[in-house]
């Protein structure tokens, strides 16, 4: 590239860079500054130093509750979702009749999953008079209070997230299909069972993809909002009150944008630390092509 076209590349990337700066970088930096202020959205932010953070960690019981609910939600959702996505991907990797139809069908919930409509549908399915209790009734099981019982509500929200396993599944499927078939043939000739083949060939070869899905799903789970907001609005007894809901309420209902920014930054740090831990641990369990480790 030279002459008149030497700036062409910059022009091509300009829209993305502009979007990144305006819609990501600026709010990112601004929220960091605001987390040290008392800001009600309508008047000038007032610098309060570490007060918001002090209040968060010493006097805010709602934050404490919301953080623990969020962590439980993430640690419940991510493993279940990944395991389920991998299981379905393995099944769909077989040459079955109408396999493409099944692949599409399993992916559909992921396209719809984040939508408000599906959250509303979920609410109807698990309502006291909903489909699930109706089916349980067929087997003589008493209706379960899915949303009204704090013990069940988070689990019900978790199921919605797990049901949206399609995108992780598609990535797993692509990884499974890229595994060298000659390895399977060699293992079969040596008399390896299906489980041994999966455990010692498939699984190690797709660890980069497991790692990728783990990071992505963890980050997304920490940011879950639609499901609990629509289905339970964080209740009962704040048992589904995830941190993003608390941030939203503080920012737009209590007009406490400074405090909401502080919570958002705590959430960011938690996600970052967990991601770093995952990266650090990946050296021990993720295998890349050409890796010399045994």
């Amino acid at each position: 590239m030279g002459g008149d076209n030497k700036y062409l590349g910059y022009i091509y990337i300009a829209p993305y860079v502009a979007g990144l700066l305006i819609f990501t970088a600026f709010p990112f930096i601004a929220s960091f500054y605001l987390s040290f202020t008392d800001y009600d959205l309508l008047s000038t932010p007032k610098w309060v130093g570490l007060e918001n953070y002090q209040k968060l960690f010493t006097r805010d019981r709602t934050f404490e509750r919301s953080l623990s609910v969020t962590l439980i939600y993430v640690f419940m959702t991510v493993p279940i979702k990944l395991a389920f996505a991998l299981l379905i991907a393995v099944i769909l990797n077989y040459r079955l009749k109408a396999i493409n139809l099944f692949r599409t069908a399993y992916y559909v919930p992921s396209i719809l999953g984040g939508s408000i409509a599906i959250a509303v549908l979920w609410r109807y399915i698990f309502a006291e008079s909903g489909l699930v209790n109706m089916l349980l009734g067929v087997f003589g099981i008493e209706p379960i209070n899915w949303f009204g019982d704090p013990q069940n509500a988070l689990f019900t929200i978790t199921l919605l997230r797990c049901w949206q396993f399609g995108s992780a599944m598609v990535i797993f499927l692509a990884a499974l299909q890229s595994v060298d078939k000659s390895l399977y043939e060699a293992a079969a000739i040596d008399g390896a069972s299906q489980w041994q083949i999966f455990r010692h060939i498939t699984l190690p070869l797709i660890t980069p993809v497991i790692f990728f899905n783990l990071i992505m799903q963890t980050v997304q789970a920490f940011q879950e909002f639609n499901g609990p907001y629509i289905i339970t609005e964080g209740g009962p007894l704040k048992s589904t009150y995830l941190l993003p809901l608390y941030i939203y309420d503080k920012a737009f209902k209590s007009f406490d944008m400074g405090y909401a920014s502080a919570i958002a930054w705590v959430l960011f740090v938690i996600i970052m630390v967990l991601t770093l831990v995952a990266f650090w641990s990946s050296k021990k369990w993720v295998y890349y092509a050409g890796d010399k480790r045994s």
């Binding site: 309502a127 209070n145 009204g148 019982d149 629509i230 289905i231 339970t232 209740g235």
Partner: peptide, 18 residues
């Protein structure tokens, strides 16, 4: 009870089949 009412999820009264 509050708990029984919450069994329908975050559903407005006028949307409630009951």
């Amino acid at each position: 009870s509050w708990k029984a009412g919450a069994a329908e999820g975050n559903m407005a009264l006028h949307e409630n089949p009951k």
